[in-house]
């Protein structure tokens, strides 16, 4: 788990301590619905790119050991 990010309103954001004078936060105002829109479009885009390269994705074997995140959603 990194200390560089925080979980807020259902998504990850850069931690305040990592911002600096070069971070555009003071310059750009963005609310949660806009963040949600971007995330939704990203997921839609990734799905599109899978489909672009092949007709299907093979599923992993059932019961395969899988990593579990220690904090937050994964």
């Amino acid at each position: 788990m990194t200390e560089q990010a925080i979980w807020k309103d259902g998504h990850w954001e850069v931690a305040p301590a990592v911002r600096g004078e070069n971070v555009p936060l003071p310059y750009q105002l963005m609310n949660s619905p806009e963040r949600d829109r971007i995330i939704a479009q990203r997921h839609r885009y990734l799905e599109y790119m899978h489909d672009h390269f092949a007709d299907s994705l093979i599923q992993p074997p059932e019961g395969v050991e899988q990593i579990e995140s220690e904090h937050g959603p994964h």
């Binding site: 998504h11 850069v14 936060l25 963040r35 479009q41």
Partner: peptide, 19 residues
């Protein structure tokens, strides 16, 4: 602006997107 990686892959995280 949507297709720009600054928006699509980091806009939500950094609160900085291409406009």
């Amino acid at each position: 602006e949507l297709r720009c990686p600054n928006t699509l892959f980091g806009g939500d995280f950094y609160g900085a997107s291409t406009t």
